[in-house]
Design a protein around this nucleic acid. Structure first.
Length: 468
RNA sequence: GCUCCCUUCGUCUAGUGGCCUAGGACACUGGCCUCUCACGCCGGUAACAGGGGUUCGAGUCCCCUAGGGAGCGCCA
């Protein structure tokens, strides 16, 4: 069988974490089995669907690298097809017009709840023969009340539903437009979707969809319902748990592959392995190894994973992503200052996010206009003035600006002034970086460069002279 | 309320009847390394929801209870 999976978001907001994981698993499954991954936009709710949302979803998919083989298909462009199927159902007596008003239905539901039974449409319009004046009818699917429907699910196992639990769902609104349960069935059928991989909030809809498929004489696809992603406190993931939009993770300095890796491990595992390259995920992914239980989103672990990726990613790749963040901060590393790749290489071990990396490295590309108050107070004291002056002289005299020599100059200066390395390096660090935090002092001096080092040392010296 | 799903350290998970005095990872924590910040290395705390069965033997199979989640829309 040719594997065909799909991701079918409704464009009513951004691509969020849960959707991204659903997309990832569908994508992985298709890739793993040499199949196709289809993107379908479920925009039949015209009230809430927006093109901005469509673009946001597309943008998120692109950033994550979840490329689709077909689509995006838009349901709003397939209306004629849905009408055709609805008509077929009507013609075959598998669907009927319902003239119940909203008030009538509300009353019915209220009554059922009061009786402590499940609110369901009672099928009162099933045998109505004549239209009701002044009411545009909806169309309902005629569900078979007998027997049961078994969903054979790759993650949940076999799940049985009594058909009696299912009511006659609406497949076309009073304005004639089709509803979700109809469109999803028609599309999955027409697009030859072999595996429907989606959130388990759809598990309850599945028997209804299978019954429509059955009425249409079509074999259902294979289902896989993924458990939900919860917030850190175990409740439904929402904005108060932090970022839920995929693109926000980009803004916060995450690498797409780190997010993907994290999402993959949420609910899926391969023994004790924590880190998977995209290729490994494709090779090792096994949907039957997906957990049945919901998983809580843990920002700390994602942060750690991101750090791991920052540590080992190829430098050019990191530079590519870091450049975007420099741009966000109005810094243009190519306009002067050290080579961005050299900076990224030395900072990669001290950043958990690209935002940290860029912020920690901004001083390489910006003049020092003021020192971090605390750090200056602690390290830029009058007694280091002679040593700083001395170091400045030694550095200026160096024929080559090389790490080894720079290191030696610092060591020699410290020794000459009876200072321990810490007492020597920290003032220099504050002078060059503006704060008591930077890569090793020789690397810092090297990257800041001769001109800027001398200039910044001069600034520190005059700062100290003004103090005394 | 009804239907469906779920339940191993705080969190993500390994575990498919004996290899489990339950393993790994994050977080937390003690130490080492050290010119700062980090990285790294070594160590520690911490879980089978509860109760019944089945079995020589149960985290693993069955049942019940409890707790959590989802669905019950002219939303998807």
């Amino acid at each position: 069988m040719t594997v065909r999976t799909r991701f079918a978001p409704s464009p009513t907001g951004y691509l969020h974490i849960g959707g991204a994981r659903t997309a990832l698993f569908s994508w992985l499954y298709a890739r793993k089995h040499g199949g196709s991954f289809v993107l379908r936009i479920e925009d039949t709710d015209r009230e809430r669907s927006t093109t901005e949302s469509v673009n946001a979803i597309l943008e998120g998919m692109t950033w994550l690298g979840l490329e689709y083989d077909e689509g995006p298909f838009y349901q709003t462009e397939r209306m004629a097809r849905y009408q055709e199927v609805i008509q077929q159902l009507l013609d075959n007596d598998q669907a009927y017009y319902c003239y119940c008003s909203k008030e009538e239905l509300d009353a019915l539901r209220a009554e059922q709840r009061a009786k402590k039974i499940k609110p369901r449409y009672d099928g009162r319009c099933r045998h109505r023969t004549a239209p009701v004046d002044g009411i545009s009818p909806v169309i309902r699917f005629k569900n078979t009340p007998e027997g049961s429907t078994i969903v054979r699910d790759m993650v949940k196992g076999n799940v049985a539903f009594d058909n009696a639990e299912l009511d006659d769902l609406i497949i076309a609104r009073s304005d004639g437009t089709p509803t979700y349960n109809l469109t999803v069935v028609v599309d999955d059928m027409d697009m030859n979707i072999s595996h429907v991989i989606r959130g388990d909030d759809h598990l309850n809809n599945t028997p209804r969809q299978m019954n429509i498929l059955k009425a249409l004489g079509v074999e259902p696809p294979i289902y896989a319902h993924l458990p939900m992603i919860l917030g850190a406190d175990g409740s439904r993931l929402s904005k108060r748990h932090g970022a839920v939009s995929v693109m926000q993770y980009r803004e916060e300095g995450y690498l797409p592959e780190a997010l993907l890796n994290y999402l993959a491990r949420l609910g899926w595992s391969h023994g004790d392995q924590e880190i998977f390259s995209i290729e490994e995920m494709i090779e090792l992914f096994d949907i039957s190894a997906v957990n049945k239980a919901a998983a809580a989103f843990n920002p700390e672990k994602l942060l750690w994973l991101n750090q791991q990726y920052i540590k080992v990613s190829p430098a050019p790749h990191l530079v590519h992503h870091a450049s975007w963040h420099y741009g966000q901060r109005g810094i243009d590393p190519s306009a002067g200052g050290p080579d961005i790749q050299a900076v990224v290489e030395t900072q990669r071990d001290r950043a958990r996010t690209l935002v940290e990396l860029v912020d920690n490295s901004a001083f390489f590309y910006r003049e020092i206009d003021q020192y971090a108050e605390k750090d200056a107070k602690k390290h830029l004291k009058p007694e280091v003035l002679p040593a700083l002056k001395d170091l400045r002289g030694r550095l200026e005299a160096l024929p080559d600006w090389q790490k080894q020599a720079l290191h030696q100059a610092v060591v020699d200066t410290a020794e000459a002034h009876g200072l321990k390395m810490g007492k020597m390096a920290q003032p220099v660090r504050v002078a060059l970086a503006g704060r008591a935090m930077s890569p090793s002092i020789d690397t810092t001096i090297e990257l800041v460069g001769r001109e800027q080092t001398l200039k910044r040392l001069d600034r520190a010296i005059s700062y100290l002279q003004k103090q005394s």
